[in-house]
Design a protein around this nucleic acid. Structure first.
Lengths: 256, 256
DNA sequence: CGGAGGATTGACCAACATCAACCCCAGTGG
DNA sequence: CCACTGGGGTTGATGTTGGTCAATCCTCCG
């Protein structure tokens, strides 16, 4: 079992690398993530139709890429289980992390812009995604206003998110780390996992790259929070002991 | 004539504050921006329909807001003439600039997320926008696949843009400023203005806020570029003398 | 002509990056 | 079972970048 495998998410092991054209047996209607994902707000009848749009499930092993920079954009992906990072590779090979995606998130929306993906999506643990081919999606959006509305909602969320997440760029280092932990905790919680005790799926270097910090600075921030009794960290296991204190530290610097 | 008025954009003066329900006389079909804006790729017939969707034009005077944080989301706006900044206000009243918008850009897309706008949009010069109410837009997207495609394209561009523009957060100060100038120049050029000689519509403080720098650092970067003969700056007038040098300075640090 | 907001420049200092040593832990092979 | 290896994490010492504070200038506008 790979390092760091004790998973927040159930059912990520024993995956066949690709499940080709499996007709999405437990379709959207039976998916526990439907309240977070595209089908939110659909009627039962619409749910069945939406399920038919999901051409296949795909398993992505830890370390494999879901798509690479400049791949043709054919589909968006909904994460079912697992965890992804999205990144851009520099000419010198350095990695610029642009985001982390978990169950219920859509990945690959940047490809809407010009028929090509922007950056890579890499699985940080064995994962499973629903493949939603773009042309059928477009057609279905036309027929189902509720689906169209929800799709727009998710797109708007990405845009609004990036607009508020630009802000961390101007925060002090440990404030950024605190904001990162709180964001992660909240997203895990909204997906039914514990929001106070979880396993980091990414390295310190990846967190740093995402936040625009070095791995040492991230490590120091963790240590500082632990010294203050706000969190408990041991390698990748994190326990939030004083969420309000973290929130307050962030609020003090953040707008709204 | 207001300060800094010699404008890149024609036709920004003598504006009536609001042009209520003016039926968009020179509709999309006659608009010089249609190749940049929503109607890109529509047939003549579709263009006429699209024009009918634009309920009204609205004039926004320099300093006025187009929408404010948490205003109900009713419409997206297409900038016809002028220049906007989008921002978030902090509790202490400090301003966090999230972007600058010019002719042909859509503003207010973040509102798609949850029926409310996120942040304010403020005109940096006398401007004019097309008001595109959301319900009619949704309906038209349903009937016109080309419009739907283009709408998605613009949304995807926002998402991809934020993903690459997160990067400046990790660049050195003058590299960020160089990237900012180049981005501005390119956008102006693609809209038919000069890409090598233009007037900054925003203050050093606003640039700094956008880039996560102080106004002093922005000013120093400008001075340094000028000393190297790369640009010529005098107050808000900028002339790019050695674009390749600027590009190279950015490339050296940037990925892709 | 005076005032005010914006821009420039300099001196100083704090925060974070860099460099480096060391530790921890899992996996591997003898 | 233990020693070894290597990737990841922690911690400390030092240096650089860019923020802070402050003085001065420029330009527009009343």
């Amino acid at each position: 079992m790979p390092r760091g495998a004790p998973s927040n998410n159930a059912g990520t092991m024993h995956l066949i690398p690709i499940l080709p054209a499996e007709p999405a047996s437990p379709a959207c209607a039976a998916c526990s993530l439907r309240a977070l994902c595209l089908p939110l707000g659909l009627s039962d009848q619409e749910l069945a139709l939406a399920g038919s749009m999901v051409a296949q499930r795909q398993a992505v092993a830890r370390g494999d890429t879901l798509f690479r920079h400049h791949d043709p954009f054919r589909a968006v992906f909904a994460v079912r289980t697992g965890f992804f990072k999205t990144r851009t590779l520099g000419r010198a090979g350095q990695e610029w992390i642009t985001g982390f995606r978990m169950a219920g998130d859509l990945v690959g929306l940047e490809g809407l812009a010009d028929e090509h993906h922007v950056g890579d999506a890499v699985a940080l643990e064995d994962s499973q995604v629903c493949v939603i081919p773009y042309p059928p999606l477009m057609a279905l959006l036309r027929d189902m206003p509720a689906l169209q509305r929800q799709f727009h909602r998710l797109l708007g969320r990405e845009i609004a998110r990036d607009q508020t997440l630009r802000l961390p760029g101007r925060l002090r280092a440990d404030t950024r780390v605190a904001a990162f932990l709180l964001d992660l905790a909240e997203r895990l919680q909204s997906r039914g996992f514990s929001g106070s005790s979880f396993v980091l799926r990414m390295t310190r270097a990846e967190i740093g790259s995402y936040l625009g910090l070095t791995l040492e600075t991230v490590s120091r921030a963790f240590s500082a929070f632990q010294a203050r009794g706000w969190i408990e960290v041991k390698q990748r296991d994190v326990r939030l002991l004083d969420t309000p204190a973290l929130q307050q530290a962030v609020q003090a610097e953040m707008p709204c």
